[in-house]
């Protein structure tokens, strides 16, 4: 009898994990990871790196598809109509989504709650930079210098939120910023090195130039100081309660079953925190892999949308 009992117990021990395993979902066929940007860009490369790592770790087949348009709006607009079965996921960047939701939300078919969130891959670090021989080193000195300039200070930027953050800075400090829109961080650096603008707002592109001594950081526009220039204060330390943190994140259509969500989130977390992905991100984007997890991503998205909305509103009432 005792023997029988132990056999039953043993059987249960053997069966239970496999029961648990069957709940742990695995995809039928291949998973499609849609990227809201064109092939060859940094978001595309990031998505492909992570997808390749997931394939390697789990043995699933992850197909990467590019759906460019409107900084991810086009991709998310079609993703929201996909089945919430975990087979179709999207990779986007938070800032353009926030901005479009804030300034023309009525024309966008989705909002933050239309999606389930699985992970963030990394956080972009935006810095306010100037040429190394500029006659100012900190935001205070820049403001003092700007007050003496009749024409104002030419500021290069490549995304609207940067302008939204710097406008209140200029207003509070009583200097004039002339905002000059650029197409990319690389073009901003070009204008900066050529002496066509005074300062620029770049997301990571500045790192190698700061190392080479061609550029210097005036202020960090992130929440924290940046590794490439640890002595440069943030905007918040300078007394302006403003910051920008673009995240690269993974979303899925709303209503993923709990087990699917958990399995996918785990797969992404393992891939994002793997050595290969970490190193590649560090090399290509000068940024650290940074996964907030499903809840953290949702909190970040909701909070970010509210913050940007406030900025847009403030800019409109000016």
């Amino acid at each position: 009898m005792k023997q029988l009992l132990s056999i039953v117990v043993l059987a249960c021990i053997m069966v239970l994990p496999s029961l648990g395993h069957s709940q742990e979902w695995s995809p039928k066929g291949s998973i499609t990871l849609q990227i809201g940007f064109g092939a060859g860009g940094s978001t595309d490369i990031m998505g492909r790196l992570v997808a390749a790592k997931i394939e390697e770790n789990t043995g699933w087949n992850v197909v990467v598809e590019n759906k460019p348009g409107g900084g991810g709006i086009a991709m998310f607009s079609s993703l929201m109509r996909e089945k919430a079965d975990g087979q179709t996921l999207g990779l986007g960047v938070s800032m353009p989504i926030f901005l479009n939701l804030a300034s023309r939300g009525d024309k966008i078919p989705f909002n933050i709650d239309t999606f389930d969130y699985l992970a963030t891959i990394m956080r972009g670090e935006i810095g306010m930079v100037a040429k190394a021989d500029a006659p100012y080193n900190t935001l205070e000195e820049l403001i003092a210098y700007g007050k003496k300039q009749k024409g104002g200070i030419a500021v290069a930027f490549d995304a609207k939120p940067q302008q939204l953050v710097l406008e209140p800075v200029a207003k509070n400090a009583g200097v004039k910023f002339k905002f000059v829109k650029h197409k990319s961080g690389a073009e901003q650096v070009q204008s900066l090195l050529g002496g066509h603008v005074d300062i620029a707002c770049t997301a990571g592109e500045h790192v190698k130039y700061i190392e080479s001594g061609d550029l210097k950081m005036i202020a960090s526009m992130s929440k924290d100081r940046q590794a490439c220039s640890p002595d440069s204060k943030t905007l918040i330390e300078n007394g302006f309660e403003l910051y920008l943190e673009p995240y690269f994140y993974i979303a899925a259509p709303k209503g993923l079953p709990e087990n699917v969500k958990a399995t996918l989130a785990k797969a992404f977390d393992e891939a994002i925190n793997s050595e290969t992905v970490k190193n590649s991100l560090l090399n290509s984007m000068q940024a650290n892999a940074y996964n907030l997890g499903p809840e953290g991503t949702y909190t970040m998205m909701s909070q970010g949308a509210v913050d940007i909305k406030a900025l847009v509103k403030a800019a409109k009432t000016q």
């Binding site: 190698k208 190392e211 080479s212 061609d214 090399n283 290509s284 984007m285």
Partner: peptide
């Protein structure tokens, strides 16, 4: 960049 090479001034 994928190969860990930073195009730039250096």
């Amino acid at each position: 960049m994928i190969h860990g090479i930073q195009p730039g001034p250096l």
